[in-house]
Nucleic acid binder design. Sequence first.
DNA 1: GGAGAGTCTCAGGTGACGCTCAGGCTGGTT
DNA 2: AACCAGCCTGAGCGTCACCTGAGACTCTCC
Lengths: 226, 226
Amino acid sequence: MSEAARILVVDDDAKIRTVVRRGLAYEGYRVVEAASGEEGLEKAREHLPDLVILDVMMPGIDGLEVTRRLRSSGDEVAILMLTARDEVKDRVVGLETGADDYLVKPFSFEELLARVHALLRRRAAPSGEVLRFADLELDLDAREARRMGRTIELTTTEFSLLLLFMRHPRKVLTRDVIMEHVWSYDFDGESNVLEVYVRYLRNKLEMIGGPRLIHTIRGAGYVLKE
Amino acid sequence: MSEAARILVVDDDAKIRTVVRRGLAYEGYRVVEAASGEEGLEKAREHLPDLVILDVMMPGIDGLEVTRRLRSSGDEVAILMLTARDEVKDRVVGLETGADDYLVKPFSFEELLARVHALLRRRAAPSGEVLRFADLELDLDAREARRMGRTIELTTTEFSLLLLFMRHPRKVLTRDVIMEHVWSYDFDGESNVLEVYVRYLRNKLEMIGGPRLIHTIRGAGYVLKE
DNA sequence: GGAGAGTCTCAGGTGACGCTCAGGCTGGTT
DNA sequence: AACCAGCCTGAGCGTCACCTGAGACTCTCC
């Protein structure tokens, strides 16, 4: 995706949120904030970010619990944890719980940026990574799909749309979410470009045979499922 | 659900009720008022709100007692308590009794709004939630039900109706409450649309086998129970 | 500047879904 | 036991969300 990455910042400290948001926005990222664990989970569900920066210490649902819940719901978003100075235990537990990296407070913004870049790089261009769902494969390197041994060429838009589905299998994605992620504009006026591309994808994926994978949920959106 | 949340405001002080009602209504919430603990319990039963804002100090049944009764009747509605300035004890007891959060009087409307948002967010299905009752599962992500290992596809209306039942198991829901929640209009004229959809649900849920889960309570409404 | 690939619009078409209606059944009441 | 209100049931109708095919427009490459 040449699209700017989406980053969710979850911290109850407004000062930290502001610093991080401004810095990341300056770097060209799209930033969403949350002031609590609850709000974080909500925003994660709503915006489907590429990376979550997560404070461990928060009242209510803390960072570890947020990680746990995200992972247990099948979300594989990259997670960068912020831990207080000597809480070694937190770091260990954090990584065990499912975080991808951690950073000890206080940190310089450059340190944070380095981790963010590393995590997004790992996620964005993981060499050789292939996403799989049912009998469908999506090769992120070659930007092509495979099904039943046959290779399926995809255009840029088709690829991002299918990528979004493959990253959130069995989850109903609303038209709004899809539009925002793949076309990145709030379609005030009506456009049926989404339906058209769903059709392109279905044509290509079903041409070879096999059951329908992208299903319509009338009045809601679309799902990738068997 | 994109449906506007329902909030019940229980306070014997008419001035506070009015301020809170107007403000919340302006924010797009559906607000119901009650002037006493008794009325509060009544209205809670009648309207099944998503959140109850509850004054502690009231003549008759006070806020603590209302909370206690709601909880002991199995109601898991979010409760925000309003306590007078230095009544520390009330706050502690309030949370122990089953309130989810408290706010000290006097408060600014913005403070109230922040708590309300937080509580409703917590309630709004965090990602990956699956509701269970007996051998029935309702997957909020996939928008589908499961029973005996079989997947059951639901239409939008069937889904919201079943969701309402799953959120209030073993509780008799009157026709009025169901109509208001799922169809959001006061059906002055008679319509049997509710009966029709109960039938659709029963068909789908019982097609696979297993005992009836949605029972008719003649003259009252319907219940979800074994 | 022509060909081709890719994105998107537009104007029907279609079927799933929401809902109504009429008639049948059932449980509670007198 | 007869009656009636309340609920169930099957059929069917209209609408709108979604599908579909065709083509306009842009951009790139030769």
